[in-house]
Amino acid sequence: MAKIQIIVICTNLIFLAFIARLIIKAKLREEYAIVWLLITVLLALFSFWRKGLDVVSKLFGVYEPANFVFTGFIFFILIYLLHLSIVNSKLQKSITKLTQELALLKEQLKETNKSKIN
């Protein structure tokens, strides 16, 4: 086994442990965790199966396996960023609504208390 393989596999295991920890501590929702777990699995697969990258690159008709990796990952990252933007927009919308309702409720409470005193 080559040196680089061992480094990658070790990094992978640490990454996996870190994600597991985040899930256990409920700091990462499972729906996001799935993506990260899949990536770790993918990384692990190619670090064990060294020829794999060549095989897959050829399958897609890409000359250099490195180019294939970069293209694939950049595309994936873009899609994932878009997904995060969508989630973010949704969150912002919810926060706006909650803030408004809270402010209106507080105002109503203030009025009710005032009329109770009078």
Binding site: I95, T96, T99, Q100, L102, A103, L104, K106, E107
Partner: peptide, 20 residues
């Protein structure tokens, strides 16, 4: 007086008024 607990920006503040 309606106090928003979080800064929403002009549009969000305005909409609060319309909700009221």
């Amino acid at each position: 007086v309606i106090n928003l607990p979080v800064n929403l920006g002009i549009g969000g503040a305005m909409q609060t008024g319309y909700k009221y």
